[in-house]
Write a protein that binds this DNA or RNA. Structure first.
Lengths: 411, 411
DNA sequence: TGTGGCTATGCATACGAATACATGCATTCG
DNA sequence: CGAATGCATGTATTCGTATGCATAGCCACA
């Protein structure tokens, strides 16, 4: 979309031609159309013409161009300036009407109503970009979750949105799919596109990287996960080490299982090792032995759980009880075991972690450790907004969100 | 955060004091601190001072203030101007180095490398707000889905993000939860915060409203749903009327069911009535009667399906086969029926619509009509980007996405 | 040696809104 | 009745970037 100033289209008066416009081989029709008409030196119209504009050309009695008006202007969004013109006031006055909180500046009732009428008539909407550029605030927070397909994160997203909307903030949701590359991409995007705050579930990101991306710009951050501790970053965590410990204990003491397997995840997915540690602690405490063959890794997804179960099946032997470090994998594992004719929980008991909606769909219903994702989301968002709204620096805070064992039928 | 220009803090020379600053009862320490030092008329520093800035004040031999320097400046993000200063070039030159595509403007290798080094050293990142304000493009598209908890939408979101990332666009995801209010809110947000394009799954929005929000600004839009037809708006649809028709036919001819129930949704949720229509067409075509008692409404969610099933159970009689207009409700219904001791499919057969992942978790596995949400997402995004990138207007296009009957165990 | 062209860069401005500062007028106060 | 004050508004500037236009230096050509 070439833009041409009317003045640069003038032909017979070289002094108003820029070198650029002489040299350009820009030969579009409007330039030619305007060229046919002489223009007085100094005539300058503020308008820009796009390639597909229809121009209406006015000339004076001597044949000089006096006005070139767009007849087919692609309707541009009205600005405060348009509103101001229509209301017969200045642009800042419009701004003041809109931002009543402007330090005690009064606007007369009459002006206010005229401005509001003009806004209404033009359908004016403030341009958030311009406002943000000026105020250095975007009224936007960014949320990065680890897996949009995992029902665990939905209530978190909802809760964050609820809190944000209440404060008139928008939420930019992003989904990392547990991939380091996506996490980094998120940080990059967010550090270029200023947001006022960040909530995230970092899996692979290191403290150093997070500091790198957000420390410099002082962007408030709150995160889910107990593996990171950073100055000035609020953390919400669930004590999953203890949760798996207690759940494993329960399986041992209440259900009498002694022969365990574990479906975990790679070491670079922090909650996995932590949960395994709690599991292992209980096993060791009871002096049970743990057969390394029964430790298999998945990827937090249903298919990963299914693959892990296939691995176990192929190994020939099965543990009596299987602790799976999240529900999605637990479900994948159960379905695979059942397909292979293995009875759950009679032959293999399965314990999950999260309590996502699907845990109540599968038969047998999944015994699992329930987290409270809505609570997590609310805590994350509240902490962030406290930071956003606080005048004074707030010391790092750590919030624990509760979890509890939900006993159903699978273990 | 009060900002004070150094010049307005001058005390002994009234002529440089603004009326505002004389009158204001702003008595913060920095104003006072600077006031103690005389300033020559005309001295003006470009810097703004925040309340918590530490100032380093320099005076000349006569005791006049010559310089006020921030010592504790909260590190601001560097701008092109900072880069330019460091590299010893002008700001536009930096801009040109960054945007190599700038119409054939050449930059010498030496300058380029100096600029790049400065960028590296300062950790400069372009400010997307400023860029967008200038270019009128945001490199962002907005996506509104109807229910983040419904697995049907996840592949759509992923596909849209995949396409967008490939073109270096960001995606703003929003979730309407099927609520009209949220849909309108989305439109308002998006029409204030300019995005380059919009993809949405409008449920309640009317063509008139959509035209109102996006028509004026010429924002390219593509939508999922066959109930809307708008000039210049691409639509992807699944022929769900026909899909339910065929599936119902199949239940009649292949399974021999004659006595049907239907769990639908309120008339203002368009896909519902459409699906009911296809269902009804098959029923009528085979001359079967349809007992109105067996038509119950839900809300597209699992709990809605459960509630609908409870209504049916309470009514005393049950149909032999139940067509549920989406999987989430179908699953809710099956679980409720099973809880009540009803055998699925032996007493009541259940057919769903969508084929979400949960359809394979529930037992019996859900017989359903599979849509291809990834395909839908790809089509939506491709259509949008074609429009975004096209120089010339593109006529309205309508894409059909395939669906197919997936026969499992529930019907 | 002047003219024109090219290369590499600088200068000025615009995007839309918020805000520091200025001002005209009416009011108040001594 | 003049000076200070407050109200309602206008003017100028700013945010960070992209870009239209200008220009300095060089080279080629006549």
């Amino acid at each position: 979309m070439t833009r041409i100033h009317a003045k640069s289209c003038f032909f017979p008066l070289p002094q108003v031609l820029s070198t650029t416009s002489i040299r350009s081989n820009n030969r579009d029709k409007h330039q030619i159309a305007i060229r046919a008409i002489p223009v007085r030196t100094g005539l300058y119209t503020n308008a820009n013409y796009d390639d597909d504009d229809q121009l209406e050309l006015h000339t004076d009695e001597n044949g000089y161009l006096t006005m070139a008006k767009k007849t087919s202007a692609a309707m541009k969004r009205p600005t405060m300036y348009d509103v101001a013109k229509l209301a017969g006031v200045s642009q800042p006055t419009v701004s003041r009407v809109l931002n009543e909180n402007d330090t005690a500046v009064a606007i007369s009732e009459e002006t206010r109503s005229r401005v509001l009428a003009a806004i209404e008539k033009l359908g004016y909407r403030p341009n958030v970009l311009a406002r943000s550029l000026r105020t250095q605030r975007t009224q936007t927070i960014a949320l990065m979750i680890a897996d949009i397909s995992n029902g665990f994160y939905h209530p978190i997203a909802r809760a964050v949105q609820d809190v944000a909307r209440q404060r008139d903030y928008e939420v930019l949701i992003s989904n990392s799919d547990h991939l380091y590359e996506n996490e980094r991409h998120f940080c990059q995007v967010v550090s270029r596109r200023p947001v006022d705050g960040v909530i995230m579930v970092p899996i692979h990101l290191t403290e150093h990287e997070i500091e790198d991306y957000f420390g410099k710009t002082q962007t408030p951050v709150s995160m889910l996960g107990s593996h990171l501790h950073m100055e000035g970053v609020d953390v919400v965590y669930v004590d999953d080490e203890r949760a798996t410990y207690e759940a494993t204990r329960w399986m041992i003491t209440e259900r009498g299982y002694r022969d365990f397997g574990f479906i975990g995840v790679a070491d670079d997915l922090p909650p996995g090792p932590r949960r395994f540690h709690g599991f292992r602690r209980a096993i060791d405490e009871f002096g049970l032995s743990f057969d390394q063959r029964f430790y298999v890794e998945g990827d937090f997804k249903m298919e990963g759980g299914a693959a892990a179960a296939r691995t176990l099946l192929q190994s020939g032997a099965l543990p009596r009880a299987l602790f799976v470090c999240n529900d999605l994998m637990a479900i994948g594992a159960i379905l695979t075991l059942q397909e292979a004719g293995v009875q759950v929980p009679d032959q293999v008991a399965v314990m999950g972690f999260d309590d996502i909606p699907e845990a109540r769909i599968i038969r047998p219903m999944l015994t699992t450790i329930a987290q409270d994702p809505r609570d997590i989301g609310l805590k994350l968002a509240s902490a962030l907004f406290e930071r956003l709204e606080s005048e004074t620096p707030i010391p790092t805070r750590i919030f624990e969100s509760e979890r509890r064992l939900v006993i159903r039928d699978s273990a």
